[in-house]
Amino acid sequence: METHCLKRPTRRQFLSSVAFTILAGSAAPVMARSISGSLPWEARSADPPVQVKPGGWLFFTPEEAQTMEAVADRLVPADELSLGGKDAGCVLYLDRQLVGSYGTSSRLYTKGPFMPGLATQGYQAPDTPAQRYRSGIAALNAFTRETKGGKRFAELAPADQDAVLTDLEAGKITLPNKVDAKSFFNLMLANVMEGFFADPIYGGNKDMASWKMLGFPGARYDYRDHVSKHNQPYPLPPVSIAGSMEWMTR
């Protein structure tokens, strides 16, 4: 989920980080370890993702959740191909991500300097995703209240919602509190897509709906038995990290 691009280090930064590593290395020799014989290994070792269970919001307020469900349903509308973003669990997915390391950027470098970057360098400002959703949703609803007869985003008709989202994406709207409309739209789009296509274990992609739609086989990693079978559909149903209906013993 951490999609921020790291800035390319300059030569000087590189040199100083080497010096740092050497210092740290001599202070704590455990950092460098040579391994001979078998690779290190431990029985029962696994770092499995925890299955997200629906029920209550951990990050969003009910109003925020409602807003995001409306957004998700416009970005992934229910149609003959699949269910919509809301029913697929995209907001559940997002809610749980925002209380985890993604929401707090706890695995990213977050100390400045903060300078405008190139488009290819991704998001460069100090706010964490959690802060961006908090301020972004508030700004979006303030904007629609102001311009759409006092209605919150979720209360608009689907066609009006589409119009607002289209303008957000194009940067035609100026949101209050200095929220960057375009950048907030891109954040929502990326996260809703993740929720829709990621493994159901993370809360979205209910019943592997998006994988069934695409014919994506899921969490598998070996196709030796099928590489030579040209122009034949892959026969096995998709499978989640947590298994599938076919695994049900009763």
């Binding site: 969490a219 598998r220 990693y221 070996d222 038995d225 096995l236 499978v239 298994g243 599938s244 076919e246 695994w247 049900m248 013993t249």
Partner: peptide
């Protein structure tokens, strides 16, 4: 049948 599904999803790789 259940075993076959689990095998092909989990072990066959």
């Amino acid at each position: 049948k259940v075993g076959a599904a689990i095998y092909h999803d989990t072990c066959s790789a």
